[in-house]
Simulated scan of single mutants.
Amino acid sequence: MQIAVTTPTGNVGRHVVAMLVRAGVRPRVLLREPGRLAPGLRREVDAVQVDQHDAEAVVAATNDVDAVFWVDPTPGGEDPLADHARATTAVVRAVAENRIGRVVFQSSVGAEKRQGAGEIDGLAQTEVALDGIGVDVTHLRCGYFFTNLELQLDALRAGCLQVILPLDQPMPWVAPRDIAEVAVTRLLSPDWSGRHVQAVHGPGDLTWREVAEILTEATGRRIGVERITDDAMRAQLGQAGLGDKAIEAIVGMSTGLREDFVPEQPRSVRTTTPTTLAAWAYERLRHRLGDVS
């Protein structure tokens, strides 16, 4: 089986590649900068330099592929939804023209809304487009990544996270490595076909208050959390240099899921994965936040 993996140096993709290699598979990895691969890994994969927004390049890079793990690349332009649309065009053309048998797509909790959830709407577009070509596809509806906290190291060092969700609203939190495990299991399993939605919810739903308590215990540094207004968050993002469309795409991921949203898949043994936030934070954050006096 020839398996292609996109974003192979990303939070999930790097684990997918390593797991496939350990399973005896030589994956074809698609990335903009092959030099970013770890030297030891380069001998175990076939690396193809490609921009996932370039449909022609993606079609060429996935020739003779049997299955693909597809992740829409992180938007880098002024309009994130337009970037997602370009990535969607690329994967749909590649799957259709190369007759790729199956796709495992990294989506998100909230994509089932189809619209009104900011950047998640772009993932919903990809889901709909893949469904439309009749490919065997599993959409991984992932919870909130633990690794998103690594984007807030300054706030963690200052001891206070700022969010726009209600502090007592629970939501699924998940380790990227656990997502990769689900993805690889799907890629290698012959026992499914058709369209599937597989939620990946982590070990438990957490409120932001609970997250702050867990981080405090795991890192040894007192960390609090406060809710700020939507406009205050917009102002912060604007000061960071983001444009209006990018700001609304980010803010919408919270505002679109904070009222009357119920995930399509309830938590179950199928959707629950093992890695806890406490274990992940102890390993990944404690040393990065510095010594605590």
Rank of each mutant, 00 (worst) to 15 (best):
G204P: 00
P75K: 14
G238L: 09
R141K: 07
R86A: 03
V65F: 04
V104R: 13
H15W: 15
M1E: 08
G194D: 05
G118E: 08
V137R: 02
A240R: 15
G10M: 05
N148H: 06
E44F: 04
R234V: 03
R222T: 07
G220P: 11
A175I: 01
Q125A: 15
Q106F: 07
I3L: 07
A67W: 14
D72W: 06
D244I: 01
G290N: 06
A279M: 03
R114P: 00
Q2V: 12
D46Q: 14
N63T: 13
Y144W: 10
V45I: 09
G35V: 07
D83S: 05
L167I: 12
R258F: 13
G116C: 06
A183V: 02
P266D: 10
A96L: 06
A96K: 15
V163Y: 15
G40E: 15
V16Q: 07
G76H: 12
V50P: 00
Y282V: 02
A199T: 11
A96H: 14
D131I: 05
P73W: 15
M1K: 11
D168Y: 09
V211C: 04
R177S: 05
R14C: 12
R32M: 08
G202Y: 09
T74M: 10
H84Q: 07
A155W: 00
A183W: 00
A55V: 05
V135H: 12
L167R: 07
A218M: 10
D230T: 05
G132C: 08
L31F: 08
I164E: 05
E181G: 13
L156R: 10
I3A: 01
L123Q: 11
M171D: 00
R42A: 15
V92P: 00
L149W: 15
V12M: 14
D260Q: 06
V12H: 03
R157Q: 02
S254D: 06
P75G: 03
S293V: 04
R42V: 14
Q265L: 12
D291G: 08
D66A: 03
W70E: 08
D178E: 02
V251T: 05
G241R: 10
T271K: 01
D64N: 09
S107D: 12
L41T: 09
G202T: 11
G116Y: 00
L242I: 03
F69N: 08
T185G: 09
T6C: 06
T219F: 06
C160G: 03
D168G: 04
V174W: 03
L41S: 09
H139K: 13
T272Q: 10
R102P: 00
P73M: 11
V65N: 02
L31E: 11
A279Q: 11
L153Q: 05
E213K: 15
R141Q: 06
D191E: 10
L81I: 14
P80G: 05
N98H: 09
G122F: 09
T207G: 05
V174K: 08
V103I: 07
L30Y: 15
G76C: 02
R28D: 04
V251F: 01
P34D: 03
G202M: 13
F145E: 07
R93K: 12
A183R: 14
T88R: 15
R28A: 04
P8E: 08
L277N: 02
N11L: 13
P176F: 04
A240D: 14
